[in-house]
Each structure stands twice: as C-alpha cells, then as structure tokens.
Amino acid sequence: MSWLDIGALNDIPQRGARVVKTVHGCVAVFRTGDDQVFATDDRCPHKGGPLSEGIVHGHAVTCPLHNWVFSLETGMAQGADEGAVTTYPARVEGGRILLDAKRLIRGAAA
C-alpha cells in the first residue's frame, strides 16, 4: 500500500469527521472517541446523505438525513437497515492521518 498523508489527527475533532475530495467523489474521514480514524465514501447508500455530517458514536456513524447507522469498520448498515458504504484503509501515525493512495488518486491502479 502507498500511504498518503492527508492531514493532522487534530484537524478532525474527536467524534467528528472531515471530507477529502477525490476524483471519485468525497471521502469522509472520521476520528472516533478513542482516536482511531476510518474512511468511507461520503455518500449514504440510502439517499446520498453526507455521512461526514453524522453523529459519531463508538465505531459507528448515524447518517444526518434519515438516521441510518453504519459501522465505520465494515461499512455495513446496522440494525434493520440494509446496505453498505465503501470503506478505505486509514491509519494514524505520529499524529498524522494516512490514507491508502490507491483508489483515491487519478491514475493510481484500482
């Protein structure tokens, strides 16, 4: 994997998210209460809600539009709802957030 530094962990509030623009649309980067980071598409599979604006709890996020809840680890919708959002490898190192460049950058091998 080729890891891409996209910013400092502290640029995202705890239990919050920011977006990263990519050629394939926005990717939501979440920071959980225990300082882990996760990345998913910023489009809810239900009706396209911006997941980055949802409330983050545990390792899950609640979509701001109609309250579907998604696991940040697997992208799977929780509870009675069905669907999944694409997730991307993400990690923190030395206070910096790293995303896997593959899939995010134009021309990189899919």
């Binding site: 891409l4 996209i6 910013g7 640029d11 995202i12 920011r18 977006v19 990263v20 623009k21 990519t22 050629v23 926005c26 980067v29 957030i97 460049a101 995010l104 950058i105 134009r106 021309g107 990189a108 091998a109």
Partner: peptide
C-alpha cells in the same frame, strides 16, 4: 473546507 483535495494529485 475539505481536509484535503486529491483531485489534482496524480499517481
């Protein structure tokens, strides 16, 4: 604003 803009990055 977005945290980063990768649309202009090339591999």
């Amino acid at each position: 604003a977005p945290l980063a803009d990768l649309t202009k990055e090339a591999a």
